[in-house]
Amino acid sequence: MQNSRKGILVFIVLLFLSVNATSQHQKSGVSESDVKLKKSKKKKRVKLPEIDLSNWKVTIPEGSGKGGAISVEPPEISNYATNKILKPYMYNDSAKGALTFYAYPTSATTANTKYSRSELREQMEPGDDNVNWTFKQGGILKAKLSVDEVSRDKNGKYHKVIILQIHGRLTNDQRDLIGQRDNNAPPVLKIYWQDGKIRVKTKKLKFADVNALGILHEEAWTDDEGYNFKEEVGFGKFQIEVKVTDGKMVISLNKAEFAVYDDFNMKRWGVFENYFKAGNYFQSRDEGSFSKVSFYELEVEH
């Protein structure tokens, strides 16, 4: 009889504790289903890049062979997320909040090159390639980006990627003066991702005293020896700023290292018009090669 009473007493205590625990759980307002719902919502959170494409057109490695790569200008470029042609090469990475550019070797290249690109081209007036800027007018480009994936060559070295450029351009009068078929002029600046580091290449005159007519020809210019920033960026995020003023160009990496160009080459470059480029200009024709570049921020000022 005594054992029976003890058993009943233990049962009552356990029942009280169970009811009390349930009551406390309910008072807290948190149930298992609530926790699961919160986790589910957290996983589905979408981040989009805050990049204004109003003054950019894009060229992708798709089209009708050499010189026939497809370009999409404003305002159509603003619909890149739903554009079936662009989506394989230019798309939002909502997990990172970045605009990603994918490139690999195809037969669709732009004029005067053998490499493929998924790259933005600045347009000061949307839809018009004929309005550009000079060094005297100046310009600033600020970008935060990462190189996410790059294939390797047969020796195990990563393929090179051009991530930013300043490209030269002849005016129509200059083009006609030298009898050239198009308005293309050399790129005064190429910024490479190379084996996890940032490398800068610019142009210099072959002959310092070349005359005003001769300087317009691409053959008057050659590549400089290049400059390698010391910091290794690898596959992480980094910031680059390019600032151009009359006769001077300054490139900075993460606001800590600087490459400065302010010699006679930059002063004489003032004869050309220019435009910024940003994206993934892939420097390989190897079978199976590719690269992915993501931009988190991209801003231009004039």
Rank of each mutant, 00 (worst) to 15 (best):
V147Y: 12
Q239P: 01
Y261D: 05
L17Q: 02
T171I: 05
W221E: 09
K43I: 06
H217R: 11
Q2F: 11
I191Q: 07
F235K: 13
V72P: 04
S252C: 11
S118N: 03
N79Y: 09
E62H: 09
G156H: 14
E299G: 00
A98N: 03
D263F: 01
R121Y: 09
R285H: 00
E218C: 06
R169V: 03
S54V: 01
A256Y: 05
S78H: 06
R152L: 09
H302K: 12
R45M: 07
D128G: 04
D195G: 02
M90C: 15
Y91G: 00
P105V: 01
Q283L: 10
F272T: 08
T222Q: 09
R181S: 10
F238D: 10
I215F: 03
N254F: 04
I163Q: 01
L53K: 04
Q123F: 02
S107V: 03
W193G: 06
Q174D: 09
I198P: 02
K206N: 11
N184D: 12
P187R: 02
K255N: 15
A278P: 06
K66D: 08
G65W: 03
F229N: 15
D129H: 11
L177S: 12
K136V: 00
K190L: 09
S54R: 07
R117Y: 05
D223W: 13
K96S: 12
G97S: 09
L99T: 13
E232N: 14
W221T: 03
Y192M: 02
L145N: 14
N172V: 10
G236D: 15
L298E: 00
L205K: 14
Q26D: 08
L164D: 00
Q283G: 01
K43W: 00
T134R: 00
M124F: 14
I77A: 09
T222L: 05
D262F: 06
D182I: 02
A185C: 04
I162Q: 04
D224N: 13
K84C: 02
F135S: 03
A81M: 05
A259L: 00
N274R: 02
V244H: 04
L164R: 02
I240M: 06
K203D: 10
K255S: 15
K42S: 10
N3R: 13
L15K: 07
R117P: 04
R199N: 13
K206C: 09
N155V: 06
T113M: 05
E149M: 10
G179T: 04
K206P: 11
I191Y: 00
A111T: 15
V210Q: 08
S146G: 10
V271I: 15
D153G: 08
Q239K: 11
L141E: 07
I251S: 09
I85V: 15
D224V: 03
N55H: 13
K39W: 05
S116G: 10
T59V: 12
T113E: 04
D286L: 04
A208P: 11
L164N: 01
I85R: 15
K277T: 11
S116E: 09
F235L: 14
L216F: 12
V210E: 13
K201H: 15
